[in-house]
């Protein structure tokens, strides 16, 4: 099994760290992983994206044109990545700030009100974990126990007290994700 994922949004939404947790979760279940960010000006507040590959085999190219899953968190990323999803693949997006929803008919489209749910949880930082939870509901590429292990590995120890909050956010994502088409 190989899962090729692009996660794209604004800098500050936790796109890169969400990818990192996913990659660490893959390692926890003995998979090969690669995490390839778009770095540079993006890290200074513009758009940010990261390609994550989880595979049972050695990973060849970390650079891809098409993806099994696109997780899209803003309109510029929608414009760029909707067309890169492989036929039959998954597009997951947060409708917050999306003026032009996806229109493709040959892919599976889901939405998660990540920003809204994060504000309900009174913690904007839970946003990316809500989205991760939504993705894992649609496509359980990594087991929940491994996600929790991955969280522990990727968060510095001084943030370990936030793990229960992150776990709760993942559960919100699992519950609130909706199929669009």
């Amino acid at each position: 099994m190989t899962e090729e994922i692009i996660i794209a949004g604004f800098g500050g939404q936790g796109v890169l760290s969400m990818g990192k947790i996913l990659a660490y979760s893959g390692i926890m279940q003995d998979q090969e992983v690669s995490w390839m960010p778009s770095y540079g000006p993006e890290m200074r507040g513009g758009t940010a994206n990261v390609t994550v590959i989880l595979s049972d085999e050695k990973i060849s190219s970390p650079v891809l044109r098409n993806f099994d899953t696109a997780i899209v968190l803003n309109q510029p990323s929608m414009n760029k990545f909707e067309e890169t999803v492989k036929p039959g693949g998954i597009l997951l997006y947060d409708p917050n700030g999306i003026l032009h929803p996806p229109t493709r008919k040959d892919i599976r489209i889901y939405k998660i009100e990540g920003a809204l749910e994060a504000s309900r949880m009174k913690s904007s930082k839970t946003f990316n974990m809500i989205v991760l939870g939504a993705y894992l509901k649609i496509n359980p590429v990594v087991k929940m126990e491994n996600v929790l292990k991955g969280l522990k590995k990727s968060l510095p120890e001084r943030h370990h007290h936030l793990i229960p909050l992150n776990e709760e956010a993942i559960k919100v994502g699992l519950e609130k994700v909706e199929k669009v088409s």
């Binding site: 990192k20 992983v33 690669s34 390839m36």
Partner: peptide, 10 residues
């Protein structure tokens, strides 16, 4: 190069 330098792998 920037790709190998910036990417994360096992």
């Amino acid at each position: 190069d920037g790709l190998i330098g910036q990417m994360m792998e096992k």
